[in-house]
């Protein structure tokens, strides 16, 4: 038995934490907000967000949602920027291992609850799974209309011209819609929603997704949801239709096409590689024998891709 496991056991014996940290009344309150959110797809439900033992910006909203829906038989996966092994993912996974003692995994297919920051897994999710998003700023209209009273009214009256003003500005300044993340969507032909800071590459996955999507914003105290198989349309203009990012090379490690790639700087001489942002997907493909051009040794392959200084 490792030290960590021993500490965990002793905590559970002493009953220091309630299951999944939050007390049961708080969970009920959050579940009510979640149910309301599911009933009104895309509507931001205010909830009494709690102080969590981590700073705002670390995913306190997502953590509270996960804590409220987590059961003892659930298997939890934590993603940060597509990866299972970055600080945020490791810390939050550790948090739930410690406070709930649930099974955790890095494999998308195995998880029943996936909490994510920024990415939606490349592997299609099923109706048995729930995707929980950590949201920093839930209000898509915020940057153009600072008054909360006004944005709420705009949602209530479906007064969404302003959202297109933002897209208009994009085209006027850049010649195309330059918003690449937190790209506004219209849910079920009613509410305009900010799909958290996910890259717009993932927007098509939100549309009619089989899994339930829950969005939690801890600092802003809002929860919203997209029920399974709900229509979600990315906003655009008739002559400037919505399009996702294109990558001209496959993943350097697993050779996957049509996935979202991260740029990895290899040295200070312009060496770089592009790899799957979804680390689990990449590993699984490599285990199946798919190899990208730099799979053997990224450092050795870098001569080939080095760009002129």
């Amino acid at each position: 038995m490792t030290d960590t496991a021993r500490i965990q056991d002793s905590i559970h014996e002493q009953d220091e934490y309630n299951f999944a940290y939050l007390d049961e009344q708080t969970k009920r309150m959050i579940r009510r907000a979640i149910l309301k959110g599911i009933a009104i797809p895309g509507y931001q439900v205010p909830f009494a967000s709690r102080e969590m033992p981590m700073p705002y910006g670390w995913g306190t909203g997502g953590v509270q949602v996960t804590a409220a829906i987590l059961g003892r038989n659930d298997c939890l996966k934590m993603i940060d920027q597509g990866s299972d092994d970055t600080t945020n993912a490791v810390s939050l996974r550790g948090f739930f291992e410690k406070t709930a003692g649930v099974r955790t995994t890095c494999e998308t297919a195995e998880a029943t609850i996936i909490q994510t920051r920024h990415r939606i897994p490349e592997k299609p999710l099923t109706g048995e799974q729930i995707l929980v998003f950590q949201v920093p700023i839930p209000e898509p209209l915020r940057f153009l209309e600072p008054r909360e009273t006004e944005t709420r009214k705009m949602h209530a009256l479906e007064d969404y011209g302003l959202m297109h003003v933002k897209l208009y500005e994009d085209i006027a300044r850049n010649g195309h819609i330059a918003t690449t993340y937190a790209y506004p969507v219209k849910v079920n032909d009613r509410y305009v929603m900010d799909p958290s800071p996910t890259p717009k590459f993932d927007n098509p996955k939100i549309d009619r997704m089989a899994a339930l999507q829950l969005y939690g914003a801890g600092r802003e105290k809002r929860i919203y949801a997209i029920p399974p198989h709900t229509k979600v349309r990315s906003l655009d203009f008739e002559d400037y239709p919505f399009e996702i990012q294109q990558f001209d090379k496959p993943c350097g490690l697993c050779g996957a096409d049509n996935v979202y790639l991260d740029e990895v700087i290899l040295d200070d001489e312009g060496g770089r590689m592009f790899v799957c942002s979804d680390s689990d997907y990449c590993e699984e493909r490599r285990a199946q024998g798919h190899l990208g051009p730099m799979a053997a040794d990224p450092a050795a392959a870098r001569i080939g891709t080095k760009e002129p200084a």
């Binding site: 302003l162 297109h164 003003v165 500005e169 085209i171 203009f237 400037y240």
Partner: peptide
């Protein structure tokens, strides 16, 4: 904080104009 063109176009977009070229 938005351009003159967007200022003029805002009302059009608010009543449902969705063609950038026409708005502009």
């Amino acid at each position: 904080n938005v351009s003159a063109g967007a200022n003029v176009g805002e009302r059009l977009m608010a009543v449902g104009a969705r063609h950038y070229g026409n708005i502009r």
